[in-house]
Write a protein that binds this DNA or RNA. Structure first.
Lengths: 338, 338
DNA sequence: TTGTAAGCGTTATCAT
DNA sequence: ATGATAACGCTTACAA
């Protein structure tokens, strides 16, 4: 007899039901191909023993892991975690687990050394990469599972991607400000090497070029509240003070708003502000924030779905661009005296 | 010859190095017990083939999963995701993966049915539960791996826990308001069935009882910006309008602040507000928010460490209470005319 | 329709 | 110090 503390195995169920292990396996995975009599007997035995399949053993046999790994730059950042929520949703529907690796923290020690060991078919059935700053060489090993890039992307890494329409969002934001009569506009950007920053900068340039206007002042931030707050000082220092600011995300916009108000400027009376992302807090900011909405959970879901689709039928280099839209609130107003 | 597309197996390395698979395994897991000559030969063969162990096969053999599952009520909520970041950190140092399950979303369909199938030794080496609303019966199956409760806890589920000192935090908050002369205080709580809400309510009661004061007005919220915003209307409707509010988290405090200001009340001149959590946004709120700091990532890390410790030497029912502290900013001021 | 048995790729026991 | 081999628990040809 087996130690009753141990979890029952398929063998125990088979013995109890008086059938072979193969039949038990069939009942569990494809009940229709087994006779009703036997099926019932097996189901009874399963219930009695409390048997559940050993997922590890099944995965080994089927040469799959049963999980997808998401690589995120900062798990604590709500921007990424809401994308993860969408990914988790789509995966669960397919019976897959979500594995998470925080790339910034994992990197300590050897450069990309900590990460590399996770990028194997034996550890994940697929990869969803949310960190555009990773080395593309990481994904070139033959043992690397299929990859989908989401939200950010890596220069030099081909393959399927799901992105928000960053350029269009930035264009909408600046067009909105231009339409309100603003001409001295400042752009508070993310890090210049970040791919999101780059395409948003392109969108800003498009909006200006369409009206034949010169490029605007720029200030590089870090997507943080603190860097937005710091941008307030930079704005005050401009020889001709901007009347409107487009920030590459809502955190910087809210930080900027706080910084400007602390210096006695009013929003939107003295300065109009537009953000990007439409985080929940945007609607509850000091002055409700005009911003560009992107559906983060939906983006995550689409990325997961694309990964699953590519496992079945790899059509390389598919690129999905999700629409964004401008949400106008109270942080933007017509230029005074325009 | 083996299909060169396939990942190399330990067998391939052994053949190339002219040794047995056992020796290769030893070189990888315990190099010191094999002769230098052979070790070098094996290492050379490993490098040539690009071999990495098949983690799944190893896990099956060693009867472990190599990962810990975190059960979170809402992955998109930054409150939880920063705890996850701490958990992930501690796990990675031990070579374990972080698996994440969003319990609210997984619950769709059968009650707890979606979740139950994840709570097996064959799917996770351990569980970290961040959702106090789950059914304790879920964890009573014999096949359920070790559990540590973190942040929230489940009534009726014994076992190790890591909690912030919620009662003390609430007490600090109310003592602070009382010290400023406030007597008409309102408590905006989380859902009444939530364990956090309960212990914070206890802390509030302690602070009042110490001064022989009567219980304060209460308004039940949902830990969301929107519910805080809604509390503003409730506050205005009170027959004797409160001069100070303690909110069970910062989101509600910020929502409330926005709601009050929209009604023409000033913070802290007309109403003082204290929050809980010290989310990053608290310092950048309209009026920088006085709040109770709890170190979320640290809490997550301690929970993971406790889980790992219990795997080795289970000392049941350990309960770790982490200190919290009051961070005084500008949203609280002495009672006018006190 | 059901049973037998060969793997999946390791690690660990037992010899040598 | 090293090699042969039996597990780990399951799925899936192939046989019957």
């Amino acid at each position: 007899m087996r130690d009753p503390e141990q979890a029952p195995r398929i063998h125990d169920v088979a013995k109890l039901a008086g059938v072979s292990v193969a039949t038990v396996s069939r009942v569990l995975s494809n009940p229709s191909i087994v006779a009703e009599r036997t099926r019932l007997a097996v189901e009874k035995a399963v219930a009695e023993t409390g048997y559940t399949v050993n997922v590890m053993a099944r995965n080994l046999r089927q040469q799959q892991v049963g999980g997808v790994l998401a690589l995120v730059p900062n798990l604590a950042n709500p921007f990424f975690s809401s994308i993860l929520a969408g990914i988790a949703d789509a995966l669960r529907e397919e019976g897959l687990s979500l594995l998470v690796l925080d790339t910034r923290r994992a990197d300590t020690g050897s450069p990309t050394g900590g990460i590399r060991s996770y990028l194997t078919r034996s550890r994940a059935d697929g990869l969803i990469v949310l960190d555009g700053s990773l080395d593309p060489a990481l994904f070139s090993q033959p043992s690397c599972p299929p990859v989908v890039q989401a939200c950010e992307w890596i220069d030099g890494l081909a393959g399927p991607r799901v992105l928000a329409d960053n350029a269009a969002g930035a264009r909408f934001a600046v067009e909105h400000l231009l339409g309100l009569g603003h001409r001295r506009i400042m752009h508070v950007t993310g890090p210049s090497e970040n791919t999101l920053s780059q395409s948003r900068a392109a969108g800003v340039a498009q909006a200006l070029a369409a009206l034949g206007l010169a490029p605007v002042a720029r200030m590089e931030g870090a997507f943080t509240l603190a860097s937005g707050h710091a941008a307030a000082a930079a704005l005050m220092a401009e020889p001709e003070r901007p009347t409107a600011v487009f920030c590459d995300n809502d955190e910087m916009a809210i930080g900027l708003m706080a910084g400007l108000q602390a210096r006695g400027l009013r929003v939107p009376d003295d300065v109009s502000i537009v953000g990007f992302d439409n985080i929940e807090m945007a609607a509850y900011a000091n002055v409700p924030l005009t911003t560009v909405r992107q559906k983060r959970a939906h983006l995550g879901r689409r990325a997961a779905e694309m990964l699953l689709a590519h496992r079945a039928a790899p059509k390389l280099d598919e690129e999905l661009i999700l629409p964004v839209e401008l949400v106008i609130r109270q942080s933007t107003a017509p230029l005074q005296g325009a």
